[in-house]
């Protein structure tokens, strides 16, 4: 009986934790931001694994992933990069640092750099795996520049 109670209590705690960790009860702007990042990540993974020789190069798949990166990096994200949703207000739910909204924020410029690097990547992604690796460089540099300045380290 006691054991059952403990078990059901811990089930409730577990559900509560997973909800606050980004599921339905979480801040919608954070959920959308992370989803956007995961789409970057997934498309990069397709290209990166081909460049590293971990998967076989496929012209159509490479081109599609690069085109997706162009689309993603040119979408307006203004609706979910909003003040009040940084780790200063929401704690561990998000890794976004408040500096992104300060007057000297470089996030907009980094976003533009990412878009330009993605366009350059898409121009060569269909030409073979040798071209993909080097073209990923500037894309990764833009991701890293933003994570350096505006994402708290937490692994």
């Amino acid at each position: 009986m006691k054991l059952l109670l403990v078990l059901s209590l811990s089930a409730i705690v577990a559900t509560a934790t997973s909800v606050s960790a980004g599921g339905h009860g979480g801040n919608p702007a954070v959920t959308a931001r992370k989803a956007h990042m995961q789409l970057y990540q997934h498309n990069l993974m397709i290209l990166g694994n081909m460049a590293r020789g971990n998967t076989e190069y496929d012209t159509a798949a490479a081109q599609a992933a690069a085109d997706n990166l162009v689309s993603l990096s040119t979408l307006s994200q203004a609706g979910y990069w909003i003040p009040g949703t940084t780790n200063a207000e929401l704690g561990d739910e998000t890794r976004l640092l408040p500096a992104v909204f300060e007057a000297d924020s470089t996030a907009r410029q980094i976003g533009a750099d990412l878009a330009a690097a993605s366009v350059a990547l898409a121009a060569v992604a269909g030409t073979g795996p040798e071209a993909v690796g080097p073209a990923l460089g500037p894309v990764g540099a833009a991701c890293t520049a933003c994570h350096r300045a505006y994402r708290v380290s937490d692994n």
Partner: peptide, 13 residues
């Protein structure tokens, strides 16, 4: 490259 094996990219220090 800064890319992790699952293609997150490095940040912070």
């Amino acid at each position: 490259t800064g890319f992790t094996p699952d293609f997150d990219s490095a940040g912070g220090g």
